[in-house]
Design a protein around this nucleic acid. Structure first.
Lengths: 163, 163
DNA sequence: TGGTAAAGTCAACAAGACTGACGTAAATTG
DNA sequence: CAATTTACGTCAGTCTTGTTGACTTTACCA
């Protein structure tokens, strides 16, 4: 309601916040557009992409861990995972230390699709980054991280950082 | 594949781009979490939120314009719009200049829900902004805009800017 | 041995997207 | 003025991706 608040001097009006919210909405569309086009050719959806992405990112991850990262139910994930295993993109290996666990890894075929999807998505990100410069990118990442729920931030930070 | 490229010196490795992509994924979850909780109490979903948001933002907008902004089919939008009109949150007024058009406006009840949803979403955005400072916010907005498809960027820029 | 945990599955359901086909009213154009 | 196009609404059917709830199998652990 009020436009200016906060402890020091404040720079963010509700209108400016609203523009940020809208930017997020429009940008997310662009963010998913390129991989979506590729996935369509394979008869896959975004859920498949997410599974492939995080399995690639943490090879050998367990189903439970993946569930926590994606924040969906096991029934939902299982549907996706089953088709990926059937199609030979993902391999599910029985755990050695704990045989109840299944460790998920991408097959060669899975890695090929992952590379395809990742490159498409990176291309847009790279173009955007290049357009706006390194300082902007730093700010972008900082705001995004600050917007995450604590649990998600934990998962985000657990993913290995670029050296 | 290669890590460094571009005309000058380059700062973005594929690994860094990947972290940006993941940040986007986790942040979007947080971005929608608060309004989702409110919407649930009314039996509405995100689609209702989006319609309400953009009708509030451009009062009197036509159905066609809303379709272009949201990027969905009219069948999909209509389902949502119908319930909002039935529930008395949105009013659909026959156009005066062109009687084929319907101009959409929020009723008082609609405005009340909009205010609720907007404040919930702004609160998180505000907290994030405050955590990271004004320079970061500027970068955030710049990157998001650079990530949009041209059409979406057009719609984004057509929304009135904070003075 | 008994309880808990990991994974998988079956069934039913809902939101929200899609396509395709149609209908009506109003505007526009030849 | 007649024909076409536009704006909107609707019916019907499909798909993806999420949900809940119940149940099983296997394995770990105290």
């Amino acid at each position: 309601m009020d436009d200016r608040r906060g402890p020091h001097l404040l720079f963010l009006t509700d209108e400016q916040l609203k523009k940020g919210i809208e930017a997020m909405f429009f940008a997310y569309k662009g963010f998913t557009a390129d991989p979506d086009r590729i996935l369509e050719q394979y008869g896959y959806g975004r859920a498949h992409h997410r599974a492939i992405h995080f399995i690639h990112r943490s090879p050998g991850t367990t189903v439970n861990n993946l569930l926590a990262i994606l924040g969906v139910t096991k029934q939902s994930l299982n549907r996706v995972l089953r088709t990926l295993v059937e199609d030979g993109l993902v391999e599910s290996r029985v755990g050695t230390r704990d045989k109840r666990e299944r460790h998920l890894v991408l097959t060669e075929k899975g890695q090929a699709l992952e590379a395809d999807l990742a490159e498409a998505q990176r291309a847009r990100m790279r173009a955007a980054y290049r357009e706006v410069g390194p300082e902007a990118v730093d700010g972008f990442r900082k705001v995004l991280e600050a917007m995450m729920d604590p649990d998600m931030r934990r998962h985000f930070n657990a993913l290995k950082d670029p050296e």
